[in-house]
Write a protein that binds this DNA or RNA. Sequence first.
DNA 1: GAGACCGTTATTTTT
DNA 2: TAACGGTCTC
Length: 781
Amino acid sequence: METTDFLTQLNLSQRQAVQHFCGPMLVVAGAGSGKTRALTYRVAHLIRHHRVHPENILAVTFTNKAAREMKDRIGKLFAQEQAEAKYGKPFLALTAQEQTRLRSQVYKNITRHLWMGTFHNLCARILRFDINKYQDEKKRRWDKNFSIFDESDAQSLIKKIVTKELNLDDKKFDPRSVRYAIGNAKNQGMSPLEYQRAEPDYRGRVIAEVYGIYQDNLAANNALDFDDLIRIPVELFQQNEQILGYWHQHFNHILVDEYQDTNRTQYNLIRFLATNGEDPKYFNNWENRSVFVVGDVDQSIYSFRMADYTILLDFQNDFGDGLPDGDTRTMIKLEENYRSRENILEVANKLIENNTQRIDKILKPTRGLGEEIYCYEAENELEEAEFVCSKIAEITDLNPELDWGSFAILYRTNYQSRPLEEKLIHYDIKYVIIGGLRFYERKEIKDALAYLRVISNPADTVSLLRIFNTPRRGIGKTTIETLLNASSQMGIPLWEILNDQTSINALAGRSSKAVNQFARIIQHWQDEVENLTALEILEGILEDSGYIEDLKKQGTEDADNRMANLGELCSAVAQFQEDNEETTLESFLANASLASDLDNLQEGQQAVSLMTLHSAKGLEFPVVFMVGLEQGLLPHFRSIDDPLSLEEERRLCYVGITRAQEQLFLSYATERRQIWGVRDTTVPSDFLGELPADLVNTNAMKKVVYRSTGQSKKTQNTGVKKAVSHQIKNWQVGDKVMHENFGVGLVTNIFGEGKKISLGIKFGKSQKIIDPKIASMTKLN
DNA sequence: GAGACCGTTATTTTT
DNA sequence: TAACGGTCTC
């Protein structure tokens, strides 16, 4: 339990960080160096020692989970302190009732007032106050009930614009890359018009046009996407000195965690708030004011989301005194690692040394040497999964104190979870998947939220269309088209038409009864929005809309599953209401769109955690398995040719390694199911070669029990497979191939043997002779 | 208006 | 391989 005089529990650098009061400060914090602790204690120290009001502290975390945990820890610190002040004994010695009383008091007086959350969360909060004062270059406006569109909402909206509204070829203007370009523009603070000026060629003009229509659509739906949540406050601050002044005054102390993963817009937001819009170089009014950022360039893994670690590298020149490491008063390095065993750290240190883009820093061990690090070569991804499972079983047998919650399996891409799941089930090991198909992206959850959104924000036509005929209530394409047509010609949201019975009767023809009934249900719950809690509305609308009944009627396993998920959603709403002492629909919705799957990761759940390396950032586990260490997977093939992207892949690997406290297992498969169910041979990751050979045991691991899955695979050359298997395939007449230029073909002849083999292949009508070592061609099964 | 069927196409990472 | 979207039929 953490005691009140927390300063004594810190090392010198940590203490310096915690005691920092005013002015800028950069904390360079390596993995496992106790930076969360430093952040937590500093917030507590500001409140307790410097008498800063919690309301005046803005703390940005990378996930909601991190924010919740930090609030929780701060709450505990104060509860402890007050237990001693009031009752003269430690918190845990109080009765349960006294404990609850104290904790809710601390919540009411302190933690509740902190502005602590992700950029998106905090900005959404700011916008609920001020978005009605914003209008963009085309006079588009929003009001405080705005919906937040997630990535898939945004994507399908853009697809609709590209294919339906502009009649463009979605091969040439792939909605995903268009979305990416728009996101890019937004994160550089560019409006559609500015983008058009910056990219005047044909493609740029088209994208600018899509961007403009996209913003029209968002505004018409009273909706924002993730990027807008941050971009709009920044623009608002630029436009309006008074609003900026207000928030600048409000947030005296700004803390940012994971600063290496902020992007330009987020940086601008911080800069505006900290210096009231002035150039940080010349800003010197730091009285009662600070910017305190914590980060680690070696763990910057979000450049695909426009994160830019040079923002961290520039901090010293930007806000700081710019002095060299020895003399500076605006930078502290935390290098002692309290998490991992020495050999794990050494492997991590050696790996990351290969990167050029860094601040010089090593992880210093404090915990002594640990178990040997193993690297296992599997034949394929199923056997790799087999290895992981049998190791978990073996380790839990030998160490009764470890439960399944002590293990994590980390991979590069979500689809790698499948074979692992299969084997975990086979071994009867309990597991949780973090990420993948996220809870809030499931169909039934999105449907339920769409109902809630329409109730809260009737202008949200995207959500309205989602549920209009879900469950089936006999409203078809023609009816919807007629109604939509009317709404666009009159320039009003679809709901305005549905809200009026006469309009429905005039337009909907045969379906008017069904449409009217639907409209009445929505109206009913809209009327109750002020009187009822979010939970009551959710349960009511699920029943009223016939959604639950429809699922019950189906009676399939899938439908049962969906019902269970809806039940879980109800519990989530209940939980939210309890945690936040806030029961309005509006506040729940604001939160739900931004919730991530990581939020569901509960400690002490006694299940093995499966997640991507990205999701694993900030977490730690006694035993870590990193699977799929192959060229093309880690590093991912899309990053392999670009040196800077390759460095990011290396950081990703580094993040994975540094999650392990006691023991680390690495593995790769020599043959892997790739795309379209086609098997292919693989090459071990280059990163493995960068690890110190004397610390990683690559032998000794083959004797894992292999539980046969049915087909016995006979490979002739197991011993040398690693070196040559990606070059030599055993070709036979009748093999099918996929050729990059000629498509699918059938092997009809084989000429020569061994390395000098050539193949006669029939592609449709034409016959060709091809050297398989040179051709870009893969063998199909 | 609903459901079946077939062909196409996609896998990086996430707030 | 699997999931999705478009088309066709009743």
